[in-house]
Write a protein that binds this DNA or RNA. Structure first.
Ligand SMILES: [Mn+2]
Ligand SMILES: [Mn+2]
Ligand SMILES: [Mn+2]
Ligand SMILES: [Mn+2]
Lengths: 217, 217
DNA sequence: TAATAAAGTTAGGTTAATCTAACAAAAAAT
DNA sequence: ATTTTTTGTTAGATTAACCTAACTTTATTA
């Protein structure tokens, strides 16, 4: 059985390798993402390689093996199901769920997570619009683009948020945006990408950085 | 914040001191209850004393301070609320809940546990009939006696089970006993305390040891 | 291409939580 | 009142997960 620490490494590696085009990760990158020092991470990499979760050569790039991916997705499944539980059943707001799910994702019980999945009605997406893998590990892919690529005078449905930080999510909520709501793009400033939008009759102006973190369509 | 290990020590100490008449515990006793060696426990006792959770002198008995009791009851509250959740909402049987609750009791989030309490309708007792302390720490005391002290030809309501082991609980269920069911005591063998009982029309013979682990009335 | 910067590794150290083996104190039995 | 048993303590070792400081390799830039 994996330790909490090992699970966190695999989850971080999955995220990084999915974000990077070649499916690779580096020691420093991983260390930064876990808020650890590269030296610490280097030790763990040897252990994870030994246990066949990663492929890795000294001074080379890190990739997840099929086994590593399987475990990584398992943690992600648990994380997202717990977030859904907190949001749907316990009235947590979408900016509060992540922190608690970071703990709950490490509970070891296959029965628990499958029963939870059933209790929630086998949800396909979590409160941030991220897909929840099934028991078999199947992930539903949603074709989506970023708000930053939207066009003037069009209306779009919000499918997900990219940044899951509490600060961003609270900001998003304040503008009136929530999952599956509709955003009308009134105008876009070509100089700096500032966008005038309208959500449920409420008008706001948002930055390009903001628009890069909202998934639409 | 307490480590999981420290929390487990406080929970074990609470159980032992409540069971022992003088509210005291010993090093070996605690070690046995945690499946650890006395030497290991001895080290931790120094740490817990330093942090003011216990009162303790070298070669003396261990007692919990008010602070130690407060934290201990906090863990017990979480444990029992999670057991109730697993039993009521996720269809776990009463012999399966304990193991998973042992993990869930360590999740750190006051909001989570209070919302869970609300979601469950502020239950007063867990699936084993044990009282669940309120947010304020108030424990509802139930006056109960043991089945071993029952009388022939009387009928009693089952209030709780003393032993929470999976093996015992499965045995209890097989005899047809569940919480709040009624047991009719048909006869008692004075020699060895064997008891002939009837539950929902189903007759069984149970040992004295069995009868010492069922709370009634 | 040589210098510099960035990325990655190694050596050595810390802390929490465990252990075994040997020892000391207290309690129980003879 | 001794002896024996039980209980509790100490010393020293181990493992996982972290760190800092120094070093090496690879990549970038001048
Ligand atoms: Mn999250
Ligand atoms: Mn999420
Ligand atoms: Mn339990
Ligand atoms: Mn219980």
């Amino acid at each position: 059985m994996l330790s909490q620490t090992e699970e966190n490494y695999l989850k971080a590696l999955l995220k990084i390798t999915l974000d990077n085009e070649h499916g690779e990760a580096g020691t420093n990158e991983l260390a930064a993402s876990l808020s650890l020092k590269p030296a610490t991470v280097n030790d763990m990499l040897k252990k994870l390689k030994e246990k066949q979760f990663i492929a890795y050569e000294k001074y080379g790039k890190i990739t997840l093996t099929a086994l590593g991916k399987k475990y990584g997705w398992g943690i992600v499944r648990k994380h997202r199901l717990w977030e859904t539980f907190l949001f749907e059943k316990l009235d947590f707001s979408w900016d509060e769920v992540h922190e608690v799910a970071e703990q709950l994702e490490h509970i070891q019980s296959v029965k628990l997570i499958d029963k939870l999945d059933q209790f929630l009605g086998y949800p396909s997406f979590d409160p941030h619009g991220d897909p929840i893998p099934t028991h078999k590990g199947v992930v539903k892919i949603q074709y989506k683009k970023l708000l930053v690529d939207a066009q003037e005078n069009e209306t779009y449905k919000v499918l997900a948020v990219k940044d899951n930080s509490s600060a961003f999510l609270q900001y998003v909520a304040k503008v009136g945006i929530q999952l599956n709501c509709h955003i009308k793009v009134k105008s876009i400033q070509t100089f700096d990408g500032m966008m005038h939008i309208e959500v449920d009759g409420k008008k706001s102006t948002v930055s390009q950085k903001f628009a890069q973190n909202i998934f639409i369509e």
